[in-house]
Design a protein around this nucleic acid. Structure first.
Lengths: 162, 162
DNA sequence: ATAAATTAAATCGTGCACGATTTAATTGCT
DNA sequence: AGCAATTAAATCGTGCACGATTTAATTTAT
């Protein structure tokens, strides 16, 4: 044992390699996700949106009207998260919520004229942020490819343990 | 215009490519991060930990004692998130919090014997989850490499807009 | 020496996430 | 028809995240 004066020597010395933050895949994933959300914020603030609200709107812009569950499948969120989020979007006049008369259990979410109009405001956001983050196109595509390949296995694993 | 009966035809038709969820890098990042956290939960539940608490403990296992700010730099979290989290870890008897007598502004976080002992319980978690998610080693390494390369640019961009 | 600037935590308010439960509507089964 | 099982949202409770502000201690520049 070297005559180190570092009081944490004993702790660091016995730290198993696989538990070091630097060796974990989960941490950069967690950090990158939060950083990207923070990068979106200034753009979304101007529109009065949060990042999860923006995700839900992107889903609706693509396929509205949708039920809460259908949005949930696409966003991987369930009603405990979506119901209050959708109520906030409704309060902002961006979506409307109405029970499906054919099946009263369902709530159908539609875009209002205002909600649809917001799409135009958002068109430039991805490109702006892409440049702001100084992303390399090839690396970004490769990253997306790997993440898309990872997701099905993760979903299966999460279901399996539930 | 085709004689589609899809009532959403008009909406989907005009959806700009760059706003489709499928074409965004941010969404798989957001989804993967949440899925990984959910995958950790069953393992961490047994120990009474949340994923962010586990991250903070990994940091402490590597370099305790640390101030709140030092933990924050490593975890990319600040006192508004860390203070309550650390109080919960303290309430569980895993860490101790004490003002630095040399600089009363600082709060030094140390591991208790119990907090240090928990490390042993966690050694197998990364390997277990890696297998549970059916991760391919090469892809995982490549993914980690890309994410690690992405983080500095994201951090710079987030600072720049603040 | 002291006032201004800086730094470190804590506090506050809002909005996710998500496990668990509840409520209500529909479907399936006899 | 009628009752059990299923499904869809909503509700509840806890714990992050994070912008903004506050409090208090230290540093700096007069």
């Amino acid at each position: 044992m070297p005559d180190s004066v570092d009081p944490d020597f004993a702790v660091a010395e016995s730290m198993p390699e696989q538990l070091r933050l630097q060796n974990q895949l989960c941490f950069p994933l967690y950090a990158a996700s939060r950083l990207v959300t923070r990068l979106y914020q200034p753009q979304l603030d101007r529109l009065g949106l949060t990042y999860p609200q923006y995700v839900v709107l992107m889903i609706l812009w693509e396929s509205a009207p949708l039920t809460v569950n259908e949005i949930g499948q696409r966003a991987m969120l369930s009603s405990n998260t979506l119901t209050p989020l959708l109520k906030r979007l409704e309060a902002q006049g961006l979506v409307s919520r109405q029970r499906d008369s054919a099946d009263e259990r369902r709530v159908v979410i539609s875009l209002t004229e205002q909600g649809l109009a917001l799409r135009g405001e958002c068109e430039c956001i991805p490109q702006t942020l892409f440049e702001q983050a100084g992303l390399n196109v090839e690396e970004a595509l490769e990253l997306k490819r790997l993440l898309d390949a990872l997701l099905p296995g993760l979903e299966r694993a999460v279901e399996g343990t539930a």
